[in-house]
Amino acid sequence: MKRFDYVRANDVGEAVAALAASPAARIIAGGTNLVDLMKYDVETPERVIDINRLPLNTIEATESGGLKIGALVSNADLAYDSRIAERYPLLSSALLAGASPQLRNLATTGGNLLQRTRCYYFYDTGTPCNKREPGSGCPAIEGVNRIHAILGTSDQCIATHPSDMCVAMAALDAKVHVIGPGGERTIAFEDFHRLPGDMPEKDTNLQPGDLITAVELPAEDFTAHHSYLKLRDRQSYAFALVSVAAALKIEDGRITQARLALGGVAHKPWRDTEAEAMLKNSTPGVASFSAAAAKVLETARGYGENSFKIDLARRAIVRTLKQAADGTPQSQTDKRIR
């Protein structure tokens, strides 16, 4: 671990000022990913700014009828919050599909947004990696890539975003509240994370000096028809090979609203609005679900070991949409897939 200066911020203003003074600093909240990466010498900040004293740990109703989740709300508190569990069960489910109870107690909402990839090479400083060391190369493309991306990849990077929470937030059309040197602003979830392109070192569109303060969920919820299905190499405590968040509104046997996002397949939570548009006004069933899945995977590309994800994602989309349509969301404790 590289030695660093430790700064404890007592309010948002202090944190923003500290960040402005050293834009290369890292924010520490739960620390579950940052400390992990610092011990591997993947993250080597000169300065670490502790924001745990900031008043960003509440969940509040918004004027437009949604909820605003403070950046420091832990994954556990968020998953079990009664308003979230009742109105946004998709988000609760995704949170509970991720990590472990003890990690969820530490990990925060803001930190989860900034989780970095699980790519083996990114984590191993004994190997090249364009994300960790731009220009050094991407051995994953012709190497061990079972867990890597099939959508939105570049010839520089095929890493995936590992979050479950973010997949549900993408499907729920959340917004990210940020405060930076230029003041406060919101970023649509779709625009928050990036594809690797030729700058794989950049995971998000945050600007230097930005601090995430909250994530806002819009009023529109999907309580009747939703499901989060996570497929992985063991039954718990593992990152997704493929995960699917599906949310539907169904009236008189027709889909009137559809949301579909995938995890484990791309450098960002992969929401496909075109597939959603195809689902809208269709009759729920294997035919429409399969068509939507085909749409999502139209541009998918495998790299050898991960090529199975294309078929797996297709199957998972169909199944998750069926779970959502049937009102039988996937349980995160009963491992039988509904």
């Binding site: 430790y6 739960g30 003890q102 107690n105």
Partner: peptide, 27 residues
């Protein structure tokens, strides 16, 4: 494991279970 991947370091912090290997003491 020292990286939050095994749970052997689990302690209770303010009554809640947590992986103490990923917590900087100063925080």
């Amino acid at each position: 494991c020292d990286h939050g991947q095994c749970g052997a370091c689990t302690v209770l912090i303010d009554g809640k279970r947590a992986n103490s290997c990923l917590v900087l003491a100063v925080v």
